[in-house]
């Protein structure tokens, strides 16, 4: 997993609530057996119309926006557990998703792929959207060590939560497998004691 400490970047705003993982990556693109290449089809049915033409005003297609931060309305990543959604977002080039609320499974999947979910208050999210509207290239700074997100132009900042173990993993590029395979003795110990009827 890639390490993550700090990022200063403009952001791409998708002002839609309840973005489900079927929109992030539709099921018909889940047939690959590797993790790569999903970025091409991220938000496929919003980025392209039914004739396969780019929808010019969809923010990811709009050249005035750029950067490694995706900003969305609340309940981002609801629906399916497909990790392909996190792969598609990172493969496209995003490192951070900002929303006021994340679906549980998506949040876990993002953290397992070095994609940082930054949960902010509704009020701060509104500020972020309006700052980008005013200046599409306005920068956000995400500082994982200090758990802050800052609107660089005005200095307005907010603290965000992250599990302390997950934070260490992101900063050092470790993942849970590394941790779990070192617990084998304890796992075997558990197995020998557990009540089992199956």
């Amino acid at each position: 997993m890639e390490k993550f400490k700090k990022l200063n970047s403009p952001a791409v705003p998708v002002a839609i609530a309840d973005i489900d993982t079927d929109q992030i990556i539709p099921a018909r693109f889940l047939k690959a057996t590797s993790r790569e290449g999903f970025g091409e089809n991220v938000f496929r049915d919003w980025r392209y119309d039914k004739n396969g033409e780019l929808v010019q005003d969809f923010p990811l297609n709009d050249s005035k926006y750029s950067g490694k931060i995706l900003v969305a309305e609340k309940n981002f990543g609801c629906g399916s557990s497909r990790e392909h959604a996190a792969w598609a977002i990172t493969d496209y080039g995003f490192k951070v998703v900002v929303s006021s609320f994340f679906a549980d499974i998506f949040k876990g999947n993002a953290l397992n792929n070095g994609l940082l979910p930054v949960q902010v208050s509704e009020a701060f999210l509104t500020k972020v959207f309006s700052a980008i509207q005013k200046d599409p290239q306005t920068a956000l700074e995400v500082d994982l060590e200090n758990q802050t997100i800052t609107l660089v132009a005005t200095g307005e900042k907010e603290q965000f939560e992250i599990n302390e173990y997950k934070k260490e993993c992101m900063i050092n590029g470790y993942d849970d497998i590394d941790y779990l395979i070192n617990q084998k003795t304890e796992i075997e110990n558990y197995e020998s004691k557990a009540v089992k009827f199956w």
Partner: peptide, 13 residues
């Protein structure tokens, strides 16, 4: 439900 990274974790541990 779990993501694929966790599927691998459960396979491994």
């Amino acid at each position: 439900g779990i993501g694929t990274s966790q599927v691998a974790q459960v396979m491994a541990s």
